Computed example of a mutant assay.
Amino acid sequence: MTIKTIIAAIALEHGEQQVARRAIRLAAAHGARLVLAHAIESLPESDPRLPSPANEKAIASMLEAEAIASLRQLAESAAVQVEVEVECGKADQLIERLIRDHAADLLVIGPGRPQNLRERIFGSTADRVVRVGLCPVLVVKRATDDPYRRVIAAVDFSPMSFAAAQTAAQIAPPAKLELIHAFEIPHTFEQAMLKVGTSQAELDRYREAKAQTAYAELRSVRADLAVAGKIRVVRGDPATALVRVARSGRADLIALGIQGKNAVSRLILGSVARRVLAASSCDVLLAGGAMSRD
C-alpha cells in the first residue's frame, strides 16, 4: 500500500486542529497530496411553515468563505500540496464523495461527539464513514505533533485485521509495531468440557495449545508484514483486553480490523471497535478492506 492521497475531515467547531496537524505530518512523511475538508451542517432545513432567513444564499456563502479561510490558515505551515474542500450538507456524504473522487488512501478524522439522539444511536460522522469502508480511517484523539513511536495492531487472523496491521506498518514505518491477539474460551464451553469428564489438567493443556497456536499464527503474520515487532497473546474478552491496552499508555496508535457481517453491524460499529474508540487515549486506526497475505 502506498499513501498518495489523504483526506482530512475537519470539524472546525470542535477545535480539531490536531486532526489537521496529524494529516499534514503524515502527508509530509509520505509525500502525499492532502485534502482538508469541512461540511457546513448548521444551516437550518427549509420549512414552509416558517419564514425563510433573509438571503439564505448569502448566509451559506459567508459560512463557506469563513470555513475556507480557517482551513487555509491551518495549512499555512504545511510543506505539502494542500487542497481545501468546503460544502454545505452532510459531512459523511461529502467525505465519501471526496474519497471516491480522489481515490484516497487514508481518511484522517476526529472522534466526533454525538449531536443528537440519532447520532447517539447510529453513531457520529466517524462511525458512518468507517462503516462504508472505502479506505482506512485514522481517528485522531491525541493533541500532539510527535510521530508515532509505539503501535499496537490487534490481530484476530481475519483479512481485515491483517489489513489494519499492514496499514499501521505503512503509516508509521519507524515505529515499534506489536501484534497482539486476544482469545477467550467461552465459559459455557469450559463447563461442558468438565461435565463430560475433561480433567482440569486437560483443560489447562487445551488453553495452552490455543495460546501456542495463536503465537505460531502471529509469527506467520509478522513474517508476512516483514516487520520485526513483538508478538503477544492474552486471554480474555478481546474488547476488554484491547481497552486495557489502549488505556495503558503503552501505545501511540492502536490498529483494528472491522467488518460488517449483517444489517445491524453495518449500522452500528462492532462492539470491540466502539469500546476501544470510546476508551482509548491514543489514536485508533480502523481498516475494513481485506488485503491479501499472498
Rank of each mutant, 00 (worst) to 15 (best):
A79D: 08
V86W: 04
R274C: 05
Q166P: 06
A287R: 11
S42E: 12
R205T: 09
A23D: 05
E64S: 05
R250I: 07
M291I: 12
A169K: 02
I7F: 13
A32R: 02
R232N: 15
A154Q: 09
A104D: 02
S161L: 04
L134N: 08
V140E: 07
V82F: 09
A143D: 15
G112W: 00
A226P: 00
G289F: 04
S265A: 11
V272W: 10
A164P: 03
Q81M: 06
A263W: 14
A192Y: 09
L179D: 06
R97W: 04
V234F: 06
A192P: 05
G31Q: 06
A91K: 04
A239Y: 08
L134D: 07
A216V: 15
L242E: 01
A79I: 12
I40L: 05
A143Y: 07
V86T: 02
I180W: 12
D101G: 04
I185C: 09
L26R: 07
Q170I: 13
D105A: 08
R205M: 10
Q115D: 02
V227W: 13
R275A: 12
A37I: 03
S158N: 04
V129F: 02
D156H: 11
I109M: 11
S248R: 03
A255Y: 07
I231H: 14
V86Y: 05
A201Y: 03
D105V: 08
D156N: 09
V130H: 02
G31I: 02
E184G: 11
A37Q: 00
L71M: 04
A209M: 14
D294G: 13
P111E: 01
A37W: 00
A168E: 00
I59V: 13
A241L: 01
M291V: 11
A75H: 05
V221T: 15
L50N: 05
V245A: 11
P48C: 09
S52L: 10
D237H: 10
A216S: 10
H14K: 14
A153T: 03
T5F: 12
T167S: 12
L203D: 01
V151E: 04
G270W: 06
N116L: 04
H102A: 07
D47C: 06
S271I: 07
M193S: 08
V264D: 07
V243S: 03
F122G: 01
S77K: 13
V151P: 06
A79V: 11
A8E: 05
E85C: 12
F122D: 03
R131P: 00
Q73H: 06
K57P: 00
T125M: 01
I40C: 02
T167H: 08
G15T: 00
L218Q: 02
I7N: 08
K230M: 13
A279H: 07
A209T: 14
